[in-house]
């Protein structure tokens, strides 16, 4: 049996302590130990981006991070990107544009799109497509996703 370890991390803005298996990936720990099921398991090998989170502010696939690595760090999941009383502009734009079908890939797309707009507030379509290349949508609803990110970019400029 794998050893249990205590991990302390800034999770969506709250210092959180939780117990995990030493062999848990961050994805396993978020879903199974903490109950943050917004983060999705797709391929579980770093290809699909459904498990994307921000680790110390940087976009990563949580299936390719050990839970133990985040001790003392910070993690932002899709549950943590909304503002105080309203959705994040990226979330609102996905709703407005109906940029989702089955929805499994959506949390990863939202986190990745937020990370893009944080570093590049006015991306070109090509830059959006290149940035989101690591997020796969099996319903193939890419056009609406791209449109939603463009809309989010515009609405964030207005604010």
């Amino acid at each position: 049996m794998s050893k249990k370890i205590v991990i302390s991390t800034d999770l969506n803005g709250d210092i959180t302590e939780f117990i995990a298996d030493e062999r848990d990936s961050l994805l396993d720990a978020l879903r199974e130990r903490i109950g943050l099921t917004g983060v999705k398991e797709g391929c579980n090998n770093g290809n699909c981006g459904a498990c994307a989170v921000l680790l110390d502010g940087i976009l990563v696939n949580s299936c390719c991070v050990m839970a133990a690595e985040v001790d003392g760090g910070s993690v932002t999941t899709v549950e943590g990107i909304a503002l105080e009383n309203e959705l994040h502009p990226v979330q609102q734009a996905f709703l407005n544009e109906a940029a989702l079908q089955c929805g499994i890939c959506t949390p990863g797309f939202l986190v990745a799109a937020k990370a893009l707009l944080d570093t590049n507030p006015e991306p070109t379509e090509e830059e959006i497509r290149f940035w989101l290349a690591g997020n796969l949508c099996r319903c193939t609803g890419y056009d609406k996703i791209i449109t939603a990110v463009q809309e989010a970019s515009k609405s964030m400029q207005k604010k």
Binding site: G46, G49, A52, V60, W131, A133, G134, N135
Partner: peptide, 9 residues
């Protein structure tokens, strides 16, 4: 190398 989430690591 991979996508942006891979390049973060």
């Amino acid at each position: 190398i991979g996508g942006k989430a891979i390049q973060g690591r």
